[in-house]
Design a protein around this nucleic acid. Structure first.
Lengths: 242, 242
DNA sequence: CGGACTGTTGATTCGAATCAAAACCGGTGG
DNA sequence: CCACCGGTTTTGATTCGAATCAACAGTCCG
């Protein structure tokens, strides 16, 4: 019954990696424990030592940290097929939270099983490593986003990035994609207050760049959005040869 | 003649990884091409496809990105023993620049050689993977720093982090460490303007938290600095078992 | 000695946070 | 079916942190 789970992972890995038939079979043979969580539930908490990794099959999740004075910063948004806590395989203690945004279908795979898989299929070990490196590349771009872009370009960059990543796994239709996220969350991704987030969105709407509802994003003018954001997709490493 | 180079690497890896005797011998057997660069020289440029990785033996380097409208953001500061472009082993095209801060002694190791080493010593492959994951953990903390902390705490966090990392490789003496970096660079690490960077530093000096010259940092009151910064070293994963 | 960075200072502007309150929405239960 | 509730979005007024502009002083180096 873990076929959907395995399929999501294979789809995602194939975006940035060459998989062989044996690799795919090995993934399909994984023991994956399926679980369903509601929205805004903690999957893995900061400071804990998980013994398994979490594969997202359906829904969105994010990683976040809370500062000593209680402010939250979202570090990344994760989409189906990703394993947001793959780093726990090597870094035993969590240094952040992993939380669902929407209700999610998740698959849990034990560290032992993943170690065994990496040993048996070095090509998959490399693919997993590569995925964590792409993660890192996205973190770098987020540092730039938060450090050097102001409100509107910053928001535009986030939306264009999500579109590019969702498109790669076939979850967009002509500039539209599901994103059931609150403005508070968007603000926490961007290091902005809710109020300012709201004003930035109004600005983007007024300039007819996007429409955004509680559950859907529609990028109306891709060219102008990318220009506003200063977006260069190279950092997403969306092709296996790059 | 690459003994110093290999030693720097071994010292650094040992901070966060268990190395076996065979691992150490394998590293000592690496073919490392030594090179000396001056300050502010590009080691590896954005968009290129390097065929080797760069080990820092002496000096400091940083990774940076430049936005479409010419603003620079520094993404990480690298210290002796680190391989800042290890990701190029799996992500062929550079998505940022790697630049020296100070004059540096560097060791270049070909990708082929690193692949071969990883194949022969899986424990070293794991150690290298772990190093790139720690890199990622530091990026995450930098997102928080830039996104959610204001001037003074942000600067304090950077200085305390550098102290912790340098201490782990034995390059501090009682709160003091060499850091030959300009205020412009500090600002580019923190997403601040030079002018504001200067004012923040004055504030820290006035409160007798640090002294900072063109080449040296002295953390005067570690407790208050950490408190101001909201610093929790967990994300540095400085112990092999964590 | 001169020139080019680098650091410092003051005045002003601007983007974004904060505070406060309303409007909106989606669900829930009477 | 509607009143009510909590969370979310929106609006306006004000404050604040940080950028910008513009000089000037220091320092290093050839």
């Amino acid at each position: 019954m873990s076929t959907n789970l395995a399929t999501a992972l294979i789809t995602k890995l194939t975006v940035s990696n060459h998989l062989e038939g044996e690799d795919i079979r090995a993934i399909q043979g994984l023991r994956i424990r399926e679980r369903h969580l509601g929205g805004r539930e903690v999957i893995v908490a900061d400071s804990t030592r998980p013994g398994e990794c979490c594969l997202i099959s359906e829904g969105f999740a994010f990683r976040s940290k809370t500062t000593s004075d209680g402010e939250r910063q979202i570090l990344s948004i994760h989409i189906p097929g990703e394993i947001p806590d793959l780093q726990s395989l090597h870094l035993r203690v969590m240094d952040h939270d992993l939380v669902t945004v929407t209700p999610c279908t998740l698959g849990f795979i034990s560290h032992d099983e993943l170690w065994e898989l990496s040993r048996r299929r070095p090509n998959l070990a490399a693919a997993f490593w590569r995925e964590t490196l792409i993660d890192g590349a996205i973190f770098r771009e987020w540092i730039v986003n938060v450090g050097r872009r102001e409100g509107a370009p910053r928001m535009a960059h986030l939306l264009v990035e999500l579109h590019a990543r969702l498109k790669a796994i076939g979850r967009t239709r002509d500039g539209e994609f599901a994103l059931p996220i609150t403005q508070t969350d968007l603000g926490d991704c961007l290091g902005l207050s809710v109020v300012h987030t709201n004003r930035v969105l109004q600005q983007l709407r007024k300039e007819e760049l996007v429409t955004l509802t509680r559950s859907e994003v529609h990028i109306l003018d891709h060219r102008r959005m990318e220009e506003l954001a200063g977006f260069d997709p190279a950092y997403l490493h969306l092709s296996p040869s790059h």
